[in-house]
Design a protein around this nucleic acid. Structure first.
Lengths: 339, 339
DNA sequence: AATGATTGCGAACACGTGTACGCAGAAATT
DNA sequence: AATTTCTGCGTACACGTGTTCGCAATCATT
């Protein structure tokens, strides 16, 4: 049985209210009784019931985090920083994993709302602007921040200029002499597609719809996409992958086909995951500032929790090309950076 | 402003209690009024307040998960399965990251208790048997399950026979002809040390204390440990690392020293992380059944939540040697297994 | 010394829900 | 027709906390 204020009150011969005052360091109480109460609370090892407090204060000191897949190192790293920043701000984190399912994302958000979390961070939302759930969040002015964006919806967000990143990646491949560059697009990848197209256009290369291959989010999906690319009649000489995770899948497929990177096929990823530099062929990729993303998401959310009606805070961060070996260029930086 | 039962009651002209009965599908209510109430609840988009419910029922439908480092792929994978199984059982997950700090672990557990989670899973506990916090958990019969164990404390747990795994790993290295095998022990690694010693003893090799190198949990720590090993006068020819993560650090250092794996130095890891097979030199390692670990931890916890006084459930799982290239033996399985 | 301000405390209500009980009226039993 | 059971609903209390009052007693002010 756990200790309540009532019990401390009875032991010390005062009312529960007075106990509350002592514990919350309020005024209108004598030093004497305060000391007596604190001593007794300490002796009984009293711990306030956060649930009751949450109900009374209409504040749970909890934020929800919705992620597509925690085993994706990019997601994991951001999650780490989110948790870290939240802990500093005295918030706990309820984490929901959606496995890239829109349905689960909806259910997760609903559950978080029911739990009355103070705010929600949605990492890589699956939802679109028609999504009932997100619209409700917005309409009720429930504090939430996206990592990424939802097309056609004005929200708080922190994101990375993905189009710019893709532009850099593809431009770099073009500078290496590649003319047919496939794009393993994954499920979404619309913004990167824009950068991809822009790079092609600027260098006078035509856009070939066939070179854009859609696929699921798993390693196997990446391998499968690579298989399709290898089977093309006029086989591309380079592949740009939606993210490092898919790039690894592509590598698997290339290896299985006995092709070498970058000689037989150049490859560029996206994210600069901790392990990108440690793969069999160190991966050229686009680095995203994961720590900043995580921290900013929490900080914006905290602002929004304080002022739910404030107009959206929106942060756009810059990605950066990291040249290693998988693209065929000489490595510019030894990049042994991360912990 | 959110909808409450009271408001539905007023709209439909009944008491709040009747609303409760209708929503919870209780008896002692006419079909007529039930339908009327449900209709109104639907219209108003009523969502029960989980905080209030938790207070009344003394049940939060939430479990706490304490992990040392979510960016460690091994931890992330287990976390995924924990979340998954918890979601199926209609539990939400509050995640706390300790960064391998005992102090933070304590604070996390305290916070979870304050929040009245229904139970706690502690992945790789830092605490020892003297830890005040854990002892309190146990004394109060607060449901908790360890992934791993705490020496000298009888608790519920699911763990892998780490000694057996280490035994397999080191035995394998010995079979490859290695006689001086270093052990990058990391911070804890006591059980693996037993397996390490057993393998040496069984093959008539002496134990050399110097070959056991302690270090922190990060990639850099692994590299540092490798540096010490390389500096030894009678340099070892093989390294057994506490886990794949540290093994990657070791690889970094070897590469920096221009040494090849496995020719100049054989290497075996532990965990069989998703990426072990994709490193520059595919890593021989000890596979742990991560999905089983995560699921069982939740299932045991759920049992414990139902019967807090039941004697501890304890599960010991078997690890498995996965031979790739870093040990110098021929790969037995192509191991393209994981998703 | 009479008045006003301040201090120390408790009563009462609020937060949103679940549940044991009581009490009418209707239905079923004698 | 009188009694018992059952149905449908509301009253009252509980969960553990925060907060607004009001009321004495004490202190400071004139």
């Amino acid at each position: 049985m756990t200790i309540t204020m009532q019990q401390i009150a009875e032991k010390t011969g005062v009312s529960r209210i007075t106990v509350s005052r002592a514990l919350n360091n309020r005024s209108r109480i004598s030093q004497e009784t305060r000391r007596k109460i604190l001593k007794e609370a300490r002796r009984l090892n009293y711990r306030p019931n956060a649930v009751a407090k949450a109900l009374a204060m209409k504040k749970t000191h909890t934020i929800g985090l919705v992620v597509p897949d925690i085993t994706n190192p990019f997601v994991a790293e951001i999650t780490k920083h989110v948790e870290d920043r939240a802990a500093v701000g005295d918030y706990s984190l309820i984490m929901c994993v959606t496995n890239n399912s829109l349905k689960k994302e909806d259910a997760s958000i609903r559950s978080l709302m029911d739990r009355r979390v103070d705010g929600i961070i949605i990492n890589h939302p699956q939802s679109n602007a028609q999504s009932q759930c997100i619209r409700q969040l917005k309409q009720e002015k429930f504090p939430f921040v996206l990592i990424g964006t939802i097309d056609g919806m004005e929200t708080d967000y922190v994101m990375v200029d993905l189009a710019e990143g893709a532009y850099q990646a593809v431009s770099h491949l073009i500078r290496q002499g590649h003319k047919r560059i496939a794009y393993v697009r994954g499920g979404n990848g619309r913004l990167r597609l824009m950068g991809y197209k822009k790079a092609l256009a600027e260098h006078g290369l035509g856009f070939d719809e066939e070179l854009v291959v859609r696929c699921g989010p798993g390693l196997k999906d990446g391998a499968e996409a690579a298989g399709k690319i290898l089977a093309m009649q006029d086989r591309p000489t380079a592949i740009f992958a939606l993210n490092d995770f898919l790039a690894m899948g592509v590598m698997d497929a290339l290896k299985a086909a006995n092709l070498n990177v970058p000689e037989d096929m150049a490859l560029v990823g996206f994210d600069d995951v901790l392990l990108a530099s440690r793969l069999s062929v160190p991966l050229t990729t686009i680095a995203q500032p994961m720590e900043q993303i995580g921290k900013l998401a929490v900080e914006i959310l905290m602002k929004k929790i304080e002022k739910p009606t404030h107009e959206p805070w929106q942060v756009m961060l810059k990605p950066q090309l990291v040249i290693r070996e998988s693209c065929g260029a000489k490595s510019q930086q030894s990049s042994q950076e991360n912990t």
